[in-house]
Design a protein around this nucleic acid. Structure first.
Length: 210
DNA sequence: GTGCTGATAGTCT
DNA sequence: GACTATCAGCACG
């Protein structure tokens, strides 16, 4: 079904438990409006961070730093950080957990919807796209930020106003949602949280990060 | 298909 | 000074 790129998700959508929110973000569409084109992708993979004690969460220490301040902001805003010196990653800020611990949802992969040409150009991928190269457009947190031209300028930005919004689309049935451990965590520093199944994916999608 | 390596710079100790 | 919520490219089977 074709998403309505005008139907922006309201603040109320973000006002609930981060895990419920993460499940319901699956299937919604991230829309990036820029001069060249409107680019959009359907969310098919997310991970929850924080909300409770979670050493893998950047905000686990409980107070904001210059980098993590946005994670302590209003639900439905963006937290964008740089990783490995070269990639930016987009998170959706979620409400804090019961003990006031900050929480956010990392957007890990999207299924291309519109603006494929512009996204391919930003990613340095040759056109025309094939099945294989279209998969490479948005199948990872660093990749999707590159394709949608999302950088740390969006840190703290509201996801309910252009040029970056999340719009409504058909929900994903529970039967199609899979959970698994989060990607890239280090057991030495993250302990048991390394194995929490806090990664939510649309199991039927061929556009996942792995 | 799997697995390893290097690139790269900001953040916190 | 150590570490990192990654990716592309290459080797290998």
């Amino acid at each position: 079904m074709e998403p309505n790129l005008e139907e922006i998700l309201p603040s109320k959508f973000y006002e609930r438990d981060a895990h419920d929110l993460a499940r319901d973000l699956l299937g919604k569409v991230l829309v990036r409006v820029c001069d060249e084109a409107t680019c959009a992708g359907r969310i098919v993979e997310v991970e929850v961070y924080g909300g409770v004690d979670d050493p893998s969460c950047h905000a686990d220490r409980g107070y904001p730093t210059e980098r993590t301040a946005a994670m302590f902001g209003r639900p439905g805003t963006a937290y964008v950080y740089r990783i490995y010196g070269m990639y930016d990653c987009l998170n959706v800020v979620a409400p804090p957990g019961p003990e006031g611990k900050a929480s956010a949802i990392l957007v890990r992969a999207l299924e291309p919807v519109t603006g494929l040409d512009v996204m391919a150009e930003r990613r340095g991928i040759a056109r025309p796209l094939t099945g294989k190269t279209s998969r490479a457009l948005l199948s990872g947190p660093g990749k999707l930020c590159q394709a949608l031209a999302i950088d740390r300028g969006f840190d703290g930005a509201d996801l309910q106003s252009h040029p970056l919004v999340i719009v409504d689309a058909a929900p994903v049935p529970d039967a199609e949602i899979a959970t698994s451990p989060r990607i890239g965590l280090n057991p030495a520093t993250c302990g048991a949280s390394t194995y929490f199944e806090w990664r939510y994916t649309v199991a039927t999608s061929r556009f996942l990060s792995r």
